[in-house]
Structures are given as C-alpha cells and as structure tokens.
Write a protein that binds this DNA or RNA. Structure first.
Lengths: 156, 156
DNA sequence: TATTGTTATACTCTATAACTATA
DNA sequence: TATAGTTATAGAGTATAACAATA
C-alpha cells in the first residue's frame, strides 16, 4: 500500500467525509475510464459512450425497440430519438416499424454500422487491459460482480 | 446466483458485448445511486452531487484553494468558478484571497454552509445503507477498495 | 384510456479560448 | 513566462410537457 499516511487523502485533500459514499468513488473511478475511452474509441471512432453502448447492444440483439434501449440505458425516450437520429444520419442504424405493433420501431445496424460495431468491440477488449492493468484477474471479476449487484438493484 | 439464465441479460437484452467494459458497469451502477442521492440529498437539501462533494471536502479541509478542488474533482477551473458562485449566492461558502499568494483564493464554509454540510453528511450515512443493503460489509469494503484502486490510477 | 415515439423547450454541464492579476 | 482565477461562448446532455399514431 503506497498511501501510508491515510487512504482518505488524495490531491492533498482529506476525503474522510466522503469515504463512505459509493457515488463519490464511482465518479472518481470514472475519470480515468472516460479518459481512456475517449483516447481509444471516442476520438478515433467518433463515438460517445452512449453511442458505443447502443452499437454493442444492437450488435448482440435483434428486434430491439427504442423502448427497450430507453429502459436498458436509463435514457429518456426523447433522448433516444435524438441519439438514433444522429446515428442514422451517419448511416450506422436504420429504423423499421414493427409489423406486430405499429407504434414501435425496431432499430437495426446497417452494414456500415455492423462493421463499426465490430471494430469498436475489438478495441474495447484491449482498452480494458489498460484501465484494469493494476487489478488481478480475480479482482476484476469481483469488481464487475459487485457493480452488477448494485446495478441490478434498480427498480424499473 | 439468482440469474440462472445468463448474467449478460438485463431488460430483455443480451449484454454480452458489454460484459467486459468497466465503464458500462459503472454507468449502470450509477443509475440507482443517482436516484437515491436525488431522493435523500439532492431534492431535500437542494444539492447536486458535485455541490455535495464540495461541501464535504470543505467540511474536512481548511485552506482549500479552487485549484485543489478543480484537480480533486476533475472539474475545469471555469466550472469550479461557476459552482462556487452559485454556492456563494446561497450564502454557503465564501472566498478569501490568500495572503501568501494573492493569485489564489481559499474557499471556506460559512456558518450556514457548515450546518448544511453537517446535515448532508448525516443523511449520506443512512443513504448508503439503502444503496448498499444488498451487499455484505465485506463486499462493501472490497468494492470501495477496488474502485479506489481504479481511481488512483489517474495521472494528474 | 394507455403506450410508442417525436417535437419543442429550457436548463444544466462541459470544454475552450481569451482575459486579469499576480508570481 | 507561468499560474490562479474569471468571463464569454458554444456544444452536448438531460428533463419535461405537448403531440401524433396506434393499441
């Protein structure tokens, strides 16, 4: 443990009032993660985190409706519309009205979108090595499991 | 393990393309956390997450400069200025120019700010029980330690 | 009457550059 | 010349309500 003085000190500030706050630690961990994402995927492939996530979900799911995306990502319906508009303008996705329920639309990857999605997925695999290189395999597994346990706790 | 079908399924979508992406799991875990924060602190005390964090840091540190806050929270200097302007308008903080380096300013809690900070801290302790009630004490400790390990990895 | 998706609006957050005052 | 902080501006994200089409 390099921080012999106190684990609650960082950037010269005592963080003891925040040491019990999970949201704070999530935000702190998110800083390097966003940085690495931007360098590896955001910048080179011109994808924001949400856009990357949408491509990944479309990549491994068929017949995805906007409603499903909205719920899975906790993004409001108007927001999903705007996000998909932008991806559609770039020729990455198309929307097809459902035959069984003509209110809803199925979102599909175009060929171009599928190629970008596969590329992004490849990069994401190596990106994670960079982010997590200070954790052992066991630690990574535990971290992921505990985060999912917190997330699963979502109502709705 | 309750999820016998597959750990990569949620909201009816296969998430296997994202199961290795730490940023995705952080974002998913952040959803219930933000919700609980808003209910317990954001709404009743009229504090955003960053504002809460600033109050906590000022609560346990003296002679904090805006530069330190900017670095610790990874928030840009202009952003810190605006955040502190708002807190100052509400009479929660004051800024005192440093005697030793007249470029920098020390940020202090007012009496009113200190009272709100103490209240927020109290609420945050009970709030965490709600967020983490599905984790054992050991799991909480491990989760916090691993998140800090990821966060500590920040350069700058 | 409820639901899916869209439009419109407004508000917040963030990033950047240009500026000041100090060092 | 570099740093701490401010101002100004534009871009991106988000939340809300009102609306259209369908169930």
């Amino acid at each position: 443990m390099p921080n012999t003085k106190s684990d609650s000190v960082a950037h010269g500030l005592d963080q003891s009032s925040l040491s019990h706050v999970l949201g704070y630690h999530l935000a702190q961990a998110d800083v390097p993660i966003k940085k690495v994402f931007f360098k590896c995927i955001g910048q080179p492939l011109q994808l924001r985190p949400v856009e990357f996530t949408i491509l990944m979900l479309l990549n491994s799911n068929e017949n995805v409706t906007q409603k499903q995306l909205s719920q899975a990502l906790a993004v409001s319906a108007p927001n999903i519309t705007i996000l998909l508009d932008r991806l559609a303008e770039r020729g990455l996705v198309t929307r097809v009205r459902s035959e069984t329920d003509r209110r809803s639309q199925h979102v599909l990857l175009t060929r171009k979108g599928a190629i970008l999605a596969r590329k992004a997925h490849e990069v994401s695999l190596t990106m994670e090595h960079e982010v997590l290189r200070h954790l052992s395999d066991g630690e990574r597994a535990i971290l992921f499991e505990l985060l999912q346990k917190v997330a699963r706790h979502r109502r709705v």
